[in-house]
Design a protein around this nucleic acid. Structure first.
Lengths: 238, 238
DNA sequence: TACCTTCTAGTCATTCTGACTATAAGGCGG
DNA sequence: CCGCCTTATAGTCAGAATGACTAGAAGGTA
């Protein structure tokens, strides 16, 4: 159904369309920098409006899926990713988000671990971008990504969300790199270590990371229950 | 359009309906207690489903309003209230929220000051209830209110939101009562006072509250810019 | 072997926090 | 008017948390 020729009065008659989109963050090595940085996958639009601009993965809400299921499926179909964290971000419903029909987008945000992110398929129309260096995206998607970054920063300061961006064994310096990439500033290694050692759910293993050109760091494991984290009002009605 | 007789297969054909609801919190004196407690207005359903049960104020999304405008208008129409704080809470879109048609509700939450709350019209079908003592509500509205309370607790611990539940002059003890009502526990008066005195944007006036049966407390004023608070991704697309 | 890196433990001063004591300043009952 | 009640308000003190910093450990590399 092509609505792109609807004029203003027709538009006021139509009910708003419902769509689901996702902002997907992953930590990736950056060729320009020695530290990993935050990246997200975008899809190139092949139709008007905003043809050839990059946009968040998304699609319509199918009638038989919950909002979260729709987000997970859509994300899987377009990028092949299975996130370790998925939570509702915000519902965007401004009048002029789309030039043709009015669209209300319920946006989710996801975190994927490095091994998953490495497997993600990249095609002509799906590509990864650095989250802090985006050009003009389709619709209001720049605003949405910025809000996702803000939420990520807020959540990382609190809780255990950093471990959804890491593999199952990691050094304390890698955790610090997650914080530094997300918060955009450096942290004192000694103080950060003291802080992590004081928190529960981070267990030292007896393994060490090999192949580094300095003293090998100990590997740790996150033992907190991922299911117990707050994902909004649970799955009952989300 | 009456969809209540739609069967399962018909239902899968229809696009989900979009609705806007609001959870409205205000501080009210409680006849059973010496301290004020949190209340919210509910409306009685006059139609199926859930006829005669109480529900959050809400309605369909009109085609020419932003989500936030729709929430504000709806809230004004049903309760007569003009909130000092209004923010998106969550989008609820589970499959079985409504027994007839599938409904996706974008829910806002609001805070109103005591003088506003006192003016609110109460009718046969609009009544205030204590937020922590609700019976079974229509749809999944108990879940929504609980999530609203959770968000309120989180926000009050941080920021300046408590002053949206107070008048423009207040004693430090009144601020403490807001925190105690929201958090559900008592706080040490002296320590709480020290904390407030250390925060900016709370200015002592040279007035004192009269007519109390003990030493008259000094009145304070909140000088923080309400507009600068975080209300989600601003008004551009919300 | 000398030197580089990062890892890791620890010190020290400052700030923050919770529990607590004490005085101030009103109203109220006698 | 006086003693007693309540809450307001200031201050103390010990322990926890935080930020800046020092120093040795343990690998690789020239």
């Amino acid at each position: 159904m092509n609505m792109s020729s609807a004029n203003v009065s027709e538009r006021a008659q139509q009910p708003p369309a419902l769509a689901i989109s996702t902002v997907i963050f992953a930590l990736r090595p950056d060729s320009e920098r020695t530290r990993p940085t935050l990246w997200l996958p975008l899809v190139r639009r092949t139709r008007q409006p905003f043809r050839d601009l990059w946009a968040l993965p998304g699609g319509p809400l199918s009638a038989t899926e919950s909002l979260q299921d729709a987000a997970a499926r859509n994300l899987q179909e377009t990028t092949g990713l299975q996130p370790s964290y998925l939570e509702q971000l915000y519902a965007f419903g401004g009048l002029d988000r789309s030039p043709s029909q009015r669209v209300v987008s319920i946006v989710y945000w996801a975190l994927v671990k490095p091994d998953e992110a490495a497997l993600a398929r990249e095609t002509e129309n799906v590509r990864w971008f650095r989250a802090d260096r985006l050009d003009k995206l389709a619709f209001d998607h720049n605003l949405i990504v910025d809000y996702g970054l803000w939420r990520l920063r807020n959540k990382v300061e609190y809780g255990s969300i950093a471990y959804d961006l890491l593999g199952d064994r990691f050094t304390l310096a890698q955790v610090r790199e997650v914080y530094e990439a997300v918060l955009g500033r450096t942290l004192d290694p000694a103080n950060f270590r003291r802080h992590l050692r004081a928190t529960p759910d981070i267990e030292a293993t007896d393994e060490y990371l090999q192949g580094v050109r300095h003293r090998p760091p100990r590997l740790y494991r996150y033992t907190g229950a991922a299911a117990q984290r707050n994902n909004g009002p649970l799955s009952q009605s989300g």
